[in-house]
Design a protein around this nucleic acid. Structure first.
Lengths: 339, 339
DNA sequence: AATATATGCTTAAACGATTAAGTAAGCAAG
DNA sequence: CTTGCTTACTTAATCGTTTAAGCATATATT
């Protein structure tokens, strides 16, 4: 790669010191009392040589990299892709660059990523935390690293976070199913202790009991690492029971998509035989023969809030944690139509 | 953010010079003939203080950032998300970090991104180029920046590139439709001069003429900025003609998804009334009542190849351009079943 | 005339790491 | 006892930028 033009090159050509060039090109001419003629000359040379400041050198001097790190579960998953995109755009507006990494819901990878990003001197982190990563988060706090959790958080650790009310959204969705006449509503969620999923499960259970329905045998869990098999087992159990389920609530879009694949395979009629509702949005939901009712997460607002709060922390290291909770929206479509 | 531990801190605690610490911690003790005792002591202190090298300082000295820049059209699009993910993983294996940016198929944004990434001293670029960005690519060549184009390339510019044979894949898919009895096959593609899309269109046209079919009025173009309207118009024209189309070939998954939304709305029967084939993969294709036949791009291989070729260029600035072309696979499903 | 102030630039240190070159002390060989 | 070789370190320069402090020279003020 051709060597880039540095202040030194410009200084040489102008016959002045490097410092003077720096003053001019960072618009500190007045403060540094640079002559008008000389300023003009320097600028002209800089333009001629197409000078581009070396960001690395600047960072070393300033201690800031104008870069934020983003850790998602998997950038190839459209949900996280969207989150990443809004954060990228929002960061750019503030002259920040984003480095993204995928943790695969694996706490070791997540820990590695945090280290890599911090060694690259990111100014702060936006993290979608993984199960079991509490210690990593506490470390960030101890080290006083500016960071924001997004999508999920740990109720036992007071950190800045951007999230939705998973309990309410879930309760809402299930209540909608009940109102539309469903009596045996099953749920398929991830087998995890992560708070956001636990809240979704709680919303489901309480919506049932609030309406005098039993929850017995209706909550099924799938392992992240064995989605396909576990979902098939779950659906087999729910639909094969003496009283088969008449509605199914999926805790995430990945679960729903995998579940719908099997529902198609089994030839189950949606919504006649089985109503379906899912968390999260997906293009795939539009193409299913009965467009799928879903809980829309406000990804754009979440991304914006995450960047805003993170930048506040970066600018003021003493700022207290801020927990942002944004409303969701239940988008009702044919998959949950009344029987 | 708490100040990080530097070599200086360790040197102070050990009562030695910074240089000595550097030699030890970069495992150059033998070359620098460091005493065994002292080496041990230094390592111990480093561990105690949890020293993490400052990557920025290293980069400034070495001129390498161990970072590669990736420019995609839109990271929230699953196709590009997958590409990004494979590149992230492959880069990590080689101790490289990736900075991704989305160009939105906009050449100004693409140019800005290239500048931002180069100013951040990335060691090389992997680019999914945008229409009209030829000048930017030539500039990269002039500046001798290591880079690889992926997914698309400019036939007039000799660069390293990773791509598929768009013509063949398209010809293949359309031939498949013809073999399954379709006579009036329409295609919806982007209105662009980008070579990869042009090749897809050419594959379509030639497959028709090779089989003695007319192409008249069967190729429809949609603007990237007006996908929805343009697709609706295109489908209206194709299906409303005196001899309506009996098959539809989409040039990308975004076009297909938007098209299928409208096909559902119109109540067109797939595959009975209309066969459908699309370029690219999508979860949504699985949930459509007639699983959609599609052309699978070898994203994993493409990502791996891109990183491999880029690293070769980074390591050897004189290396000649390498054009990699990887085979696609036509995955035949019900949406294109024989009539 | 002596002093103060303004102007226009340079010097030098710093950020954190790397690395060639230098030095000081110990020991062996001639 | 001088020279040379090891050994075990230190010094100092460097990467590109920023910025406080310094230094002439010219002009204004008393």
């Amino acid at each position: 790669m051709k060597k880039k033009v540095s202040l030194k090159d410009i200084a040489q050509e102008a016959g002045v010191s490097v410092a003077l060039v720096s003053y001019v090109l960072t618009n500190k001419e007045e403060k540094a009392r640079v002559g008008q003629e000389m300023a003009k000359k320097i600028r002209k040379i800089a333009r001629k040589l197409n000078y581009q400041p070396n960001h690395i050198a600047r960072s070393l001097k300033s201690g800031r990299s104008d870069t934020i790190g983003l850790i998602v579960a998997d950038i190839s998953n459209p949900f996280f892709g969207h989150v990443a995109r809004t954060i990228e755009d929002e960061a750019k507006k503030n002259n920040y660059t984003v480095i993204v990494g995928s943790s695969d819901e694996n706490m070791d990878k997540s820990g590695d990523l945090i280290n890599v990003l911090l060694n690259r001197q990111v100014d702060g982190l936006i993290v979608i935390p993984t199960e079991g990563s509490e210690a990593q988060i506490r470390q960030l706090q101890d080290r006083n690293v500016p960071f924001v959790l997004i999508d999920r958080f740990f109720p036992d650790i007071a950190t800045s976070s951007i999230s939705i009310d998973n309990y309410a959204a879930s309760h809402d969705a299930v209540s909608h199913l009940i109102r539309s006449g469903r009596k045996r509503i099953g749920m398929i969620a991830y087998k995890t202790n992560m708070h956001h999923i636990a809240e979704r499960r709680r919303g489901f259970s309480e919506a049932l009991t609030d309406n005098g329905l039993t929850t017995a045998g209706l909550l099924k869990l799938a392992r992240y690492s064995h989605i396909k098999e576990d979902i098939r087992t779950a659906i087999d159990q729910l639909m094969g029971a003496k009283k088969p389920a008449d509605a199914l609530f999926f805790a995430t879009n990945s679960l729903a998509i995998e579940g719908l694949r099997y529902i198609i395979e089994l030839g189950i009629k949606v919504p006649e035989q089985l109503a379906v509702v899912s968390f999260d949005e997906s293009e795939a939901f539009d193409l299913f023969h009965a467009p799928v009712t879903f809980i829309r997460q406000p990804i754009l607002e979440m991304g914006k809030a995450a960047v805003r709060v993170l930048l506040e922390h970066i600018r003021d290291g003493e700022r207290p944690a801020e927990e942002v909770c944004i409303d969701t929206e239940l988008v009702i479509r044919r998959s949950s139509a009344a029987q």
